[in-house]
């Protein structure tokens, strides 16, 4: 039970996907104009990530290692099409807002990265906990970033006005430059927090986690 909890909870802080693992940046930047969109995208990723982990883990002993990446891609892509259809049927405005980034969930490093690095080596239960934890962490991060940008960029939060009446929206935040700068500053704040904690323990300050495409484990594995 305790290991199960550990696998689940690591996604919530220690390996918080976009902020600590620095993976899957495109949706993080693109759909966080508002907190609503961030949450919607997060829920879609929870769905795909958890189920893809479950299926990969279920099939891990049947899938020959040579075609495993191809199999992972098929599984992830089918789940993404599922999400697309369900979103069109039950949340059409969200589907319009997220646009091209719904199909692009399939190339989000987190999905294939977890399939390769975790689900293909662990039991179904563990993989579920891992997918759910990382997915929830991802959704929370997106919602947080969306809330930050929406508050300053539109003066609203989840569509409700939160700023004073004479507030002139800081449009920079909802445009592309604001997305990059905000994410950069949030990452820097995470690093500063880590260094502060290390400082309390008497340790030296270090640089933050490096973003590396290879971290997702996909990039260097040929598709054979």
């Amino acid at each position: 039970m305790s290991t199960l909890w550990k696998e689940f909870s690591k996604g919530l802080w220690r390996d918080l996907p976009p902020f600590r693992l620095v993976l899957g940046l495109c949706p993080v930047l693109a759909v966080t104009k508002t907190a609503d969109n961030g949450l919607g995208m997060g829920l879609a990723v929870i769905f795909v990530l958890t189920l893809s982990n479950v299926f990969v883990s279920l099939l891990r002993n049947i899938i020959p290692s040579k075609v495993r990446i191809a199999c992972f891609i098929v599984i992830a892509a089918s789940l993404v099409v599922c999400v697309e259809l369900l979103m069109q049927a039950f949340a059409y405005p969200l589907y319009q807002q997220l646009g091209i980034f719904v199909p692009l969930i399939v190339v989000n490093c987190i999905i294939l990265g977890r399939a390769e690095a975790f689900a293909s080596k662990n039991t179904v239960l563990m993989s579920t906990a891992d997918g759910l934890g990382l997915g929830i962490g991802f959704a929370l991060s997106l919602t947080f970033l969306g809330a930050l940008r929406e508050t300053f960029g539109y003066g609203t939060l989840f569509g409700k006005s939160v700023m004073w009446s004479g507030f002139e929206p800081f449009t920079f935040m909802i445009e592309a430059p604001g997305a990059f700068v905000c994410l950069g500053l949030v990452l820097a704040a995470m690093n500063a927090l880590t260094n502060w904690q290390r400082g309390v323990k008497g340790l030296e300050a270090v640089e933050g986690p490096k973003h590396d495409c290879k971290a997702c484990g996909m990039c260097n594995t040929p598709l054979k």
């Binding site: 049947i62 020959p64 049927a89």
Partner: peptide
């Protein structure tokens, strides 16, 4: 075999979901 099975299963599932949601979509 495995690859075609997975593809077949996913195709079947998706077609079912598609039929079920077509009206609503």
């Amino acid at each position: 075999l495995v690859l075609s099975l997975i593809c077949g299963a996913s195709g079947f599932t998706l077609a079912t979901i598609r039929d079920a949601t077509a009206q609503r979509v």
